[in-house]
């Protein structure tokens, strides 16, 4: 199991998912500005090199974040957490990853991407005997642009759009655009951000199945790409590859909006552990 998790981590950091690559290719074809084309061409080349040589496409291999859907009848429930931590240690050496876990008080780097609270593991207990897991390596430059807005119900969805657009403008080239914007609305401060982060596991180019939400996703994407920030903030037609919105019911007095900003390298991999120990890894 540990070996399979290492492979999922390797896959996530060395291979950019096909849906992301195809969105980047389309963005490249749309650009006329020379600097925007330089940046997108470099991105496409880096993706090819990562795949061909099995090396991390981006040197920021992120904070490893795991979303685990644990079937309550799986015989492996008790081993998962330890296996994730051990796989993180091994992957740091073998892939290799950049050690990105720093003690907040002393500033000391643990050297193996593990430490207090990291890798981050989000648990969900579900029916069944399989364990499904997603690994999301989250880079720091884009995460630094993530934000929370506790809007009033009166501000509503217009307020959501204004908050997201203002934040994207303020961040400019910092989060490595073209970005993917993941937005969680409702649920409370913590839950809105969690919904947003999880939304990064959705495929780029796929709209929310709820048509009303899908429409807002489309409108926001258009509005953001009209800003002209462009690849790496140096101008161009594509500032965002996609916008993902997820919702939960809200408190009558609150309108929480969690925004998670993701760089163009929207890395992910999935893994399923069957009750007989067989493992599948995919992207």
């Amino acid at each position: 199991m540990i070996g399979a998790i290492v492979e999922a981590i390797r896959l996530a950091v060395t291979r950019i998912p096909d849906d992301v690559v195809s969105a980047l290719r389309k963005a490249y074809e749309r650009e006329e500005n020379g600097v925007a084309r330089f940046n997108l061409e470099n991105i496409l080349k880096a993706i090819e090199i990562g795949k061909a040589e099995a090396i991390p496409v981006c040197q920021d291999t992120g904070t490893l974040t795991f979303f685990v859907k644990a079937g309550m009848d799986s015989p492996f429930l008790g081993e998962i957490e330890g296996a994730i931590v051990e796989a993180t240690r091994l992957a740091t050496k073998e892939v290799p990853l950049r050690p990105n876990a720093v003690d907040v008080l002393t500033g000391k780097n643990s050297g193996d991407n593990t430490g207090r609270g990291v890798p981050v593991i989000h648990w969900e207990l579900v029916e069944g005997d399989e364990i499904e897991m997603a690994v999301l390596p989250k880079g720091g430059g884009s995460e630094n642009c993530s934000a929370l807005a506790m809007l009033t119900p009166g501000e509503g969805w217009e307020g959501v759009k204004r908050f997201v657009v203002e934040r994207v403008k303020a961040c400019g080239g910092k989060p490595c655009p073209p970005v993917i914007l993941a937005i969680g609305v409702g649920g409370g401060a913590d839950y809105s951000l969690l919904l947003a982060k999880k939304a990064l596991l959705r495929r780029v180019g796929e709209r929310n199945p709820d048509e009303r939400i899908a429409e807002i996703e489309g409108e926001l994407l258009e509005e953001i790409n009209a800003l002209g920030i462009g690849p790496m903030g140096m101008g161009g037609r594509t500032t965002a590859l996609d916008v993902k919105i997820e919702v939960a019911h809200r408190h009558p007095a609150s309108f929480p909006v969690g925004l998670v900003v993701q760089c163009w390298a929207n890395r992910r991999a999935f893994l399923r552990i069957k009750p007989d120990g067989r493992v599948e890894v995919w992207q």
């Binding site: 991105i43 880096a46 981006c58 430059g141």
Partner: peptide, 13 residues
């Protein structure tokens, strides 16, 4: 000077 963020495998060349 700017180089493309995220293109680490290319920069390493």
């Amino acid at each position: 000077f700017a180089f493309t963020g995220g293109a680490g495998s290319l920069a390493a060349k």
